[in-house]
Design a binder for these strands. Structure first.
Lengths: 106, 106
DNA sequence: AAGCAGTGCAACACTGAGGTTGCACATCGA
DNA sequence: TCGATGTGCAACCTCAGTGTTGCACTGCTT
């Protein structure tokens, strides 16, 4: 599954924040609730919840309700898809720019 | 070559902007100067130059001086490296979370 | 039933990213 | 030489993102 180039900047914007990155890495270890995650962060639970919401909108985490608790889980496949899209673009650029360079030298 | 997990959020922050993304895609086609790039954008040349500086600090583009002109060129290999790092993380998460899920069900 | 724990929502403050304009400086071309 | 062109730098403005606090609500737990 590919992500779609249009939404790539949005996804990367979600990834381009140290706090969200820390949360994601933590969630890559095991699912956890906002309150639990906030315990390891120097910011309030509400702030953490907002970051998690951003990650959820970007499709990087999913939620699972357990009674009054909301557990967040990282979605590895989404990250893989982003990686694939990125690599595809990179290869396209490499090919094109190599052609131009060769033409300039030839 | 790997990027280093510490600097990943910074790199993604650079990618997480629509204008910078547009500039990158344009540069993936062919090298160009800030003034040339600004002609295709709805913002001033100075604003474009700033975005290019951000991309340069993130290692996503490189510059090449031609007289009074500064040409920017996309670095595909850097994008490939980011893709690799991302994929590595994703696979690690998948494996760990699968283990946990199996343990919970077993 | 009563209290505690986990969330959600709203109002507010602060900072930095992203934009603009104006000007000075180097370099190419006629 | 001199005007035109491409850059760089600085001052300034605006606003969305990130943080805070306070409060209400819901669902465990005893």
């Amino acid at each position: 599954m590919t992500v779609g180039v249009e939404s790539l900047p949005a996804a990367f914007a979600a990834l381009g924040d140290d706090t969200r990155w820390a949360l994601l890495q933590r969630l890559g270890t095991a699912p956890a609730s906002a309150t639990t995650l906030a315990a390891d962060q120097p910011i309030s639970r509400q702030a953490v919840a907002r970051h998690l919401e951003v990650l959820r909108e970007a499709g990087l985490v999913e939620t699972e309700v357990h009674g009054r608790e909301v557990r967040y889980r990282a979605i590895g496949s989404r990250l893989s898809a982003l990686a694939r899209d990125l690599d595809g673009l990179a290869q396209g650029w490499e090919r094109r720019l190599r052609t131009i360079k060769a033409a300039a030298e030839g």
